[in-house]
Design a binder for these strands. Structure first.
Lengths: 130, 130
DNA sequence: ACTAATAATAGTAACGATTACTATTATTAT
DNA sequence: ATAATAATAGTAATCGTTACTATTATTAGT
C-alpha cells in the first residue's frame, strides 16, 4: 500500500515535462534546492518504484550511469557521442520488433534500441567548421 | 607495442567458437583450470584490449553483468527473460539503422539493439505444458 | 646469447553506481 | 486520537569493473 510523500511528488514534478533524460545524481542535486535533506537513497527508491509502476522509464546508457525518462513506454533513444545528450527517437517500434522477429523461433516481447552518433546540434556545428 | 602472453592466448581460445556470450566471471572460472594463478584483472584487461582492437565485442546486458562475444562487429542480441540465455540475432542491421535515421536530423553511426522475450527453447517448453 | 627496455602479470586496493539496512518520521485507516 | 506501517535520512554494503604496484615475461637491438 502506497503512502503519499512530498519527496516522491518533488521527484515526479522534477522529471515530468523534460526531455534531457537526467541521471539520478542530476535529479538529486536539483531536488536538494527545495528539499535540502533529501537523500540519494530516496531518489533511487522512488525512481525504481515509479519505474516498476510503469510511470517512468529507466534508460541504460552505453556511456555512463542510468538516465530517467518521464515517458514510461520503452522507446528508442539516441546517444550523442560528442556531447553525450540523450534524445528520444520517434521511430516505429513495431517495425523494429518485426525486423527482429523475422526468422527467429522464439517470442520477442520487446526491444531496447540505442542509436548513437552525432546529434543534430553537434552535426550542425561540425558542418560549420568546413 | 603489444607483447605476446599465454594468458591472452587462453582468453582468446576460450572465447572463440562459442555462442553463449559468457561473463568475465565465467571465463575466469574456466581459465583458472588451466592457469590457476590467472587473475580477474588480467581477464578484464585483455577483454578490454581485445575489444578496443575490434577482435571481440562487449555486450551490455539489460539483466546483469557484461557478456563477451567472439563476433567483433556490433549486432543485435536476444536476451531470454526466462533462462537468461543471450543469443545472436541474425538481423539486417542496415534496416534497423535506416528505420532509426528516418526523420532524424543527426547522424546515426550505429545502434545497439537488444531484443528480449522467450528464447526458442523456453517457448517450446512452455507450449508443451498446455 | 645477453642485455635493456618495457608490456603483461598477480594480487590487491579503489572506484562509481546502486542497493540494503536501521532507527526515526510521516501518512493513513480505523 | 491511536495504531499500523510506508517512507525517510543517513549510512553501510554490494556488485562489476578499473587502477595501482611490485614482479615477471617477452621482445628488440646488440
Amino acid at each position: 500500500m502506497i503512502k503519499h510523500s512530498k519527496q516522491r511528488d518533488a521527484i515526479i514534478e522534477r522529471l515530468s515535462d523534460r526531455t534531457d533524460h537526467p541521471t539520478a545524481e542530476t535529479l538529486y542535486q536539483e531536488l536538494k534546492e527545495e528539499l535540502p535533506n533529501i537523500s540519494m537513497g530516496t531518489v533511487y527508491r522512488n525512481l525504481n518504484q515509479l519505474a516498476s509502476l510503469n510511470k517512468i522509464l529507466i534508460v541504460r546508457s552505453p556511456f555512463g550511469p542510468d538516465r530517467y525518462d518521464p515517458i514510461p513506454n520503452q522507446h528508442p533513444h539516441f546517444f550523442c557521442t560528442n556531447c553525450f545528450a540523450v534524445l528520444d527517437l520517434d521511430v516505429d517500434k513495431n517495425r523494429l520488433l518485426a525486423t527482429g522477429q523475422e526468422g527467429f523461433k522464439g517470442e520477442i516481447q520487446d526491444c531496447i534500441s540505442s542509436y548513437y552518433g552525432l546529434c543534430p546540434d553537434c552535426l550542425e556545428k561540425l558542418k560549420l567548421k568546413h
